[in-house]
């Protein structure tokens, strides 16, 4: 068995140090060692997007990275988006307002992806939204509420940062 390797990863602004086997995925590290169980695993082969997190600000599939690769990086999971316990991030608020979730399992990955997508494209058309979020799969909503939520969040974020 391969030797465990020490890593230090900043997860939602807190430094997490751990010893990891090289094969441990970043997703499993975040779930089991950083206890960010909002990082969901729904395919483990990089298609569904449920495990999406921000790594140094970029949306990535955490099931396709090994924890050792994240050594020294900054990770934001869905748990790290809301500013405080009373307030939701505008994307989270929009998902709630627009019924962008039912079972909620794909939701954390979607919310991270939508936040990153809107950062790159703050004023998307509906068609751009549909293709922009096509890297995340949902089985409950038919994407109807998710597209609406992305639209609402875009407007809210534009207002926040004119």
């Amino acid at each position: 068995m391969a030797d465990a390797i020490p890593v230090s990863v900043t997860v939602n602004n807190r430094t997490r140090r751990g010893l990891v086997e090289p094969r441990l995925t970043l997703a499993d590290f975040l779930r089991e060692q950083a206890l960010c169980t909002g990082v969901h695993l729904a395919c483990e082969h990089g298609v569904c997007g449920s495990c999406t997190v921000l790594m140094d600000g970029e949306a990535v599939r955490s099931c396709l990275l090994f924890a050792v690769q994240a050594d020294g990086s900054r990770i934001t999971t869905v748990e790290g988006l809301a500013p405080d316990e009373q307030t939701l991030h505008p994307v989270q608020e929009a998902f709630r307002d627009c019924h962008g979730l039912q079972c909620g399992f794909c939701t954390p990955g979607f919310i991270i992806s939508v936040a990153a997508f809107l950062e790159a494209n703050p004023n998307p058309t509906d068609d751009e939204i549909r293709h922009g979020i096509a890297g995340n799969l949902c089985r409950c909503t038919g994407y109807q509420g998710i597209v609406a939520a992305t639209r609402q969040a875009a407007a809210a974020l534009r207002e926040e940062q004119p």
Binding site: R31, E32, C36, T37, G38, V39, H40, L41, T77, V78, E79, L81, A82, L88, Q92, F95, R96, D97, H99, L101, G104, F105, T107, P108, I111
Partner: peptide, 23 residues
Amino acid sequence: QSVKRLEDPRLVTGHGRYVDDIM
């Protein structure tokens, strides 16, 4: 009424509790 869901605050913040979250 389209009452906003009571489930959602935990689910949109990653604080749902699915079976894999039981440790």
